[in-house]
Design a protein around this nucleic acid. Structure first.
Lengths: 142, 142
DNA sequence: CTTGACCTTCCAGTGCAGTGGAAGGTCTAC
DNA sequence: GTAGACCTTCCACTGCACTGGAAGGTCAAG
């Protein structure tokens, strides 16, 4: 099947498929006489796996690491389990960060409701955003 | 005060300060005879505001939009309130996404515990990651 | 024989918030 | 007078997953 067909059945663009090949997650298929990529049926499943793994939060680099193991004939199960566990911890951390930010924004929203615009001096810019609450966490999430 | 001093008291690098100036969130200060930036005391508070606003999840572009209002002499309160509200909704959405991904990963982790490596065919790559659970959501979170 | 859909490669840009480094100027202390 | 700490500008690069576009080749239908 040609790249456009694979793109159509997989719901990605042809451009993305070429990018995946270059990124090492989709093997380079054989070519037709005219130089067109000619994907085997297998490619549909491979692509489904890639999208599934992405949905699970794995990066293309991580997906490649799984596929390299698999393509070498090894079982990537332990590797996958480790990746999944790591992503779970990652998500837990980001959830905590997000909850903290949300609590802070809620505080700001409340404060905004009772803030007199006249209270804001030029130097402070805006009383809503400056002050004690703002030290909850220092940097941006990720 | 020179850029290194401001950087030291503010906890950012001199490089970042120049970047903030170029990004339009920190006004270009006057220069000394030698061409060095010579920041007024005010700049410390301005920078504190920028870091506070970043901590609240605002992008530099959004912060600039607040500062443009303020610098024009207007009260940015309503604008800030709108930004805060939008970010609250944004965070709510990302929390929901993250919770869904977490639930899915938990499912995968459980499945991984009972998966026989021999069940994974070459085409499917890894049974842990493929299958019904994976359709929970299609794309990557943002 | 030409139109047009599809394909090829290659280079560059997106967004975000910086960071790295080169080449050179300024100021202070010894 | 020179070392070295600090400053200046400018350009390029980081990570991530693509996306856009130019210039040109291939193939089937009319």
């Amino acid at each position: 099947m040609r790249i456009g067909d694979l793109a159509a059945v997989s719901g990605v663009t042809a451009k993305t498929l070429r990018f995946y090949e270059q990124a090492g997650v989709l093997p380079a298929p054989p070519r037709t006489a005219g130089g067109y990529r000619d994907y085997p049926e297998q490619a549909v499943k491979r692509l489904a796996f890639i999208r599934d793994a992405q949905g699970a939060g794995l990066s293309l680099a991580e997906i490649r690491s799984v596929l390299v193991l698999r393509d070498a004939g090894a079982s990537p199960c332990a590797h996958v389990t480790a990746l999944v566990d790591r992503h779970l911890r990652d998500i837990e951390r980001r959830l905590a960060e997000l909850r903290a930010t949300k609590a802070m924004l809620r505080g700001l929203a409340e404060r905004a409701a009772v803030t007199d615009p006249a209270d804001c001096t030029d130097a402070e810019v805006c009383r809503i955003l400056t002050g004690p609450t703002s030290r909850l966490h220092g940097g941006r999430p990720h």
